[in-house]
């Protein structure tokens, strides 16, 4: 059975730090092709691309994957533009939990940190997370 992290498993204050990734021209080109944004020709990384990469990096932490039923909302601040060649990693902290009947709301504070240890982007994610034993699309189907 695949390991998974449910609402009950998350403790307020838990911190997850993901692996780092170097931002490349290829990332920017693939992203621009997908979204139809035009290249800026100056080595800038599209503003929302680091956020996109951060969601994948967040799956590569020691904690088994969170059983997310829905990504509900987020607030995000871009402190400075990132450039091709810079290296980022993500840091997430469980900030708030609210239990609901069909799962629980989990609020995480996220930071994207550059190669110098400075926060380039940060914000707050709100997820609906499955509880153990409830119906959900999850990484460990029992059937």
């Amino acid at each position: 059975m695949t390991a998974a992290t449910y609402f009950e498993d998350v403790e307020i204050g838990d911190v997850e730090v993901g692996p780092a990734m170097t931002l490349t021209e290829a990332h920017a080109a693939l992203y621009r092709g997908l979204t139809s944004e035009s290249p800026d020709g100056s080595g800038g990384i599209p503003a929302l691309l680091p956020l996109v990469l951060a969601t994948g990096l967040a799956w590569r932490t020691p904690r088994p994957p969170l059983v997310v039923l829905a990504f509900m909302s987020f607030d995000w601040t871009i402190h400075r533009e990132l450039r091709v060649g810079e290296t980022i990693h993500g840091r997430a902290r469980a900030a708030l939990k609210r239990s609901m009947r069909e799962g629980g709301v989990l609020i995480e504070d996220h930071e994207l940190i550059d190669q110098n240890g400075d926060v380039a982007q940060s914000g707050r994610f709100v997820f609906l997370v499955a509880k153990r034993g409830t119906a959900r699309p999850d990484p460990a189907p029992t059937a």
Binding site: H27, L30, Y31, L34, V52, L53, T55, G56, L57, W59, R60, P65, V68, P137, D138, P139
Partner: peptide, 8 residues
């Protein structure tokens, strides 16, 4: 691109 392979 993202590395997000969530079953969803």
């Amino acid at each position: 691109l993202s590395g997000d392979y969530n079953v969803l």
